[in-house]
Design a protein around this nucleic acid. Structure first.
Lengths: 143, 143
DNA sequence: GACAATTTGATTGTGCACAACTTAGTTGCA
DNA sequence: TGCAACTAAGTTGTGCACAATCAAATTGTC
């Protein structure tokens, strides 16, 4: 039996990821943020200043992605970067007042996405559990 | 209550998408293909020659993504492109003998990915059903 | 104290994804 | 027939993602 593209779950995962991007683009556009930038902002709102390393661990992104992304956020006046005094290798990323202020304007974004996805809360949790198992399993086999 | 990044399903969907990419990179690396290129090849193995337009519909990609991708596949000697005689606007994409030949070498890729994902077949189907509903719902709200 | 190994972040190069625009060809209709 | 509307690909520009590589700082060990 020959498999077709439609049989691949990976295709649906990719498609879902891109469809989510599209909805986020609509919602975040007025804030001037992209989806990964929004994730960085959320992390900063939640945790306060963190190092690039910590950001990378939290969001599963490496410095090749984060460095230019953070520069763009800095250029937009939302974020501040400074070398840590304790360890000159690490860079501490913090919010500017403008960055802080954005939290309020962004607070209904998750609810909007949730509505757009059209799932029941229980289904969301189930989906999340499944995906996390998949990610853990995939991670194990790609290293 | 304040939401954290961990509460967003979208984060898990993205993470899963990228983790899948990583596994595909490992498997497809020896074939010299990327994951989207592999999807194009699968479509051609399955359907035979198709237009760029049809490829885009099947894979949910636009010409801005497909045009350079197809050029790379053509440069790799896997694919042929020619203007349709019937409608000079459309370009028909077909396989070269090398492209045909690759099918056999690629036939165990899906099984490899399936093992790496570590889900039961029933779980895969369930996940697929959920994701398709989400994509349909998201599509409706981003247009 | 000196030097190798490690850690942190930045840089470069490649490829995917999409928006906005361009060009060439087709179709519809007055 | 002539021309406007539309369609199919391609192009350009921006941003994300990652591999590979580099430089600088730190840590461990002798």
């Amino acid at each position: 039996m020959k498999l077709s593209v439609d049989d691949l779950v990976c295709f649906d995962v990719h498609a879902a990821s891109r469809a989510l991007d599209a909805v986020y683009r609509g919602v975040l556009g007025e804030l001037g943020l992209t989806y990964p930038q929004y994730l960085v902002m959320m992390t900063l709102w939640e945790r306060g200043p963190v190092t690039v390393k910590e950001l990378g661990l939290a969001l599963r992104l490496d410095s090749g992605t984060l460095s230019p992304l953070l520069k763009r956020l800095e250029a937009a006046g939302l974020v501040r970067r400074e070398r840590s005094a304790a360890d000159e290798r690490s860079v501490l990323v913090g919010l500017t007042p403008e960055g802080e202020a954005m939290e309020e304007r962004a607070c209904d974004v998750p609810a909007h996405i949730f509505r757009a996805a059209g799932l029941e809360p229980a289904e969301v949790l189930e989906l999340q559990r499944t995906l996390r198992r998949v990610v853990a399993s995939l991670d194990a086999s790609s290293r």
